[in-house]
């Protein structure tokens, strides 16, 4: 069933009709309900509560606990992950949730200034492969992608394919040039790594796909949709 067919089916069904008298009476019923509720007697005012000794002591104890927690948090703040790892963790979280909702349909998840954008295939035909985290930084800012070997993105005005070898090295391959992951090329800096390796999580446990090895595709065999960086 296509989206248009679904729309036709959905829109062909109207809410059950009600007689004219129903619509004439409804405003009156609503008005009556409003006035009835407005005329209900108010609850008697509560007496002011004077905090006893127990409440004051409890409040002081809570303040002490909060102070201790603040100190502990400050002590461990150095070991907190940096913003980059936080971003990758967020990307991983998005991927896990979305892959669960749309198995084998996710072509890319793009993170830019406007937020997260999802690129999905119409059918569940995206091949099994582990996800890769690609970050492209240039003068306009940086965009991050979670995508897969064989998918295409647009980089610096050029369409290029994300390819990975069996060692997990990622390359962005354009018509006449190749960007290895983790290198700068002119004004553009690219970081591309397997998402699971970045967070030191066992790929086999994290992802439920059957294939565990990255799959590399020869150029031009798959024609997925592309997402533009610019």
């Amino acid at each position: 069933m296509t989206n248009d067919e679904l729309d036709r089916v959905l829109k062909s069904t109207a809410a059950p009709q009600r007689p004219d008298a129903f619509w004439d009476e409804l405003p009156k019923k609503i008005g009556a309900k409003i006035h009835w509720q407005a005329n209900q007697p108010e609850c008697p005012a509560r007496q002011p509560f004077f905090p006893g000794k127990a409440v004051i002591l409890g409040g002081m104890g809570l303040a002490v606990i909060c102070a201790i927690m603040a100190l502990v948090s400050e002590r461990f703040s150095a070991s907190r992950p940096g913003p980059e790892v936080t971003q990758m963790a967020e990307a991983r979280k998005y991927y896990v949730e979305i892959e669960g909702l749309f198995p084998n349909q996710v072509q890319a998840i793009v993170f830019d200034r406007q937020g997260a954008h999802l690129v999905l295939s119409d059918k569940a035909n995206v091949p099994n492969s582990p996800p890769y985290y690609v970050r492209v930084s240039d003068a306009k800012g940086s965009r991050c992608f979670v995508t897969f070997s064989g998918q295409q993105i647009q980089l610096d005005g050029e369409r290029c394919e994300v390819l990975a070898d069996k060692q997990g090295n990622v390359f962005l391959v354009g018509d006449d040039r190749v960007w290895p992951g983790n290198q700068s090329s002119g004004p553009v800096r690219i970081e591309a790594k397997p998402l699971s390796a970045l967070l030191r999580i066992n790929h086999a446990n994290l992802f439920q796909r059957n294939e565990r090895e990255p799959v590399s595709y020869p150029l031009k065999t798959c024609v997925p949709k592309q997402y533009s960086c610019s």
Partner: peptide
């Protein structure tokens, strides 16, 4: 909520409705 959230919900809802109504058809 965000526009992205609405888009995801609409996409998921349509997929489910297609499955249910397709089976009924």
């Amino acid at each position: 909520c965000s526009e992205t959230t609405v888009s995801w919900r609409v996409f998921a809802a349509r997929a489910k409705l297609k499955r249910i109504l397709g089976r009924q058809q």
